[in-house]
Design a protein around this nucleic acid. Structure first.
Length: 280
DNA sequence: AGTGTATCCTGCAGGC
DNA sequence: TGCCTGCAGGATACAC
């Protein structure tokens, strides 16, 4: 579920609380979320201190003392929930890991579907992994020219292109559909068919949608919660995602849904032409 | 190389 | 009420 705005919200909150705290006991109730034995995971993290909390794409990156990285990908339904020291927090539903923090506090990882992953990496491993990912959509390295250079060489549908984390990191199905609507580009159009002007408008739309969603702490459909347990408030601002049959906010044509790449695409059939028509 | 499909897993909504 | 089907924010191992 969580895309860039949701992960950014979680990271900003955890960055306020975690640095300086150390990991004590780790209770693991769903070991399939880590790629090693619970014993080695616990032992490696014992007494490690949180130094920084960062985001890269849809990943939460915990920089720990002892040159360790804890990389968390939330999958569809993962949650990172922080409980302050003075609380005695109940484990959330589907709690998979519980980190007791020193001198006080608790960090839970919960995940109903268990598509998420928690990986311990060395800084070198993380650097290599990060290089696999595409540029950050909100970063200054991603220029209009670089974006167009990427899209112009791919015949895959632009919606699929946007979801490919090796091409651009952090966009998921919600914000891909929303940005395509705002730039009036049909989701199934080959990426290479977009003009330079269209890609510039699309990148601008991506940035506007992501920034606004961050401002509203993300979109909660079902499971997503901030690190403080709150729902995101961007849901009412969605213009096409999940709105099949409802009127387009621009022209009132019913929003359509099609499936490709195993994911639903939502779009306005009038505002987003599959074959862009000149004139009209 | 670059694309598209199937799969991991659980929960929920809607139809009958 | 209850069973069944389809669908869900993601990532990846494969087949073409």
């Amino acid at each position: 579920m969580p895309e860039l705005p949701e992960v950014e919200t979680i990271v900003r909150q955890l960055a306020e609380h975690l640095p300086g705290l150390r990991i004590g006991e780790v209770r693991i109730t769903h070991a399939d979320l880590i790629r090693e034995s619970p014993e080695s995971f616990r032992k490696a993290l014992w007494q490690a201190e949180f130094v920084r909390v960062l985001r890269r794409g849809k990943n939460v990156v915990f920089e720990l003392s002892g040159a360790q990285i804890l990389l968390v990908n939330l999958g569809m339904t993962g949650q990172l929930l922080f409980g302050a020291a003075e609380e005695c927090p109940e484990p959330p539903p589907h709690c998979a890991l519980r980190f007791s923090l020193l001198p006080g506090g608790t960090l839970f990882y919960a995940d109903a579907r268990r598509f998420g992953r928690l990986l311990r990496l060395t800084p070198a491993e993380w650097t290599a992994e990060s290089k696999r990912l595409g540029p950050e959509p909100l970063g200054s390295e991603l220029t209009d020219a670089r974006f167009f250079q990427g899209t112009s060489k791919s015949r895959s549908p632009i919606r699929s292109w946007l979801l490919d984390q090796t091409r651009i990191a952090g966009i998921g199905n919600i914000y891909a559909n929303e940005a395509l609507f705002r730039s009036q580009v049909h989701p199934a159009r080959p990426a290479s068919s977009l003009s330079e002007a269209e890609t510039a408008l699309l990148l601008a739309s991506i940035r506007i949608v992501l920034e606004e969603a961050i401002h509203l702490q993300g979109t909660t459909l079902q499971d997503y919660r901030t690190a403080e347990g709150d729902k995101g408030n961007f849901g009412p601002r969605l213009l096409v995602y999940g709105r099949e049959g409802l009127p387009c906010s621009v022209c009132e044509t019913p929003v359509a849904r099609t499936v490709f790449g195993n994911r639903s695409a939502f779009f306005c059939p009038k505002c987003q032409q599959e074959v862009p028509s000149s004139g009209l």
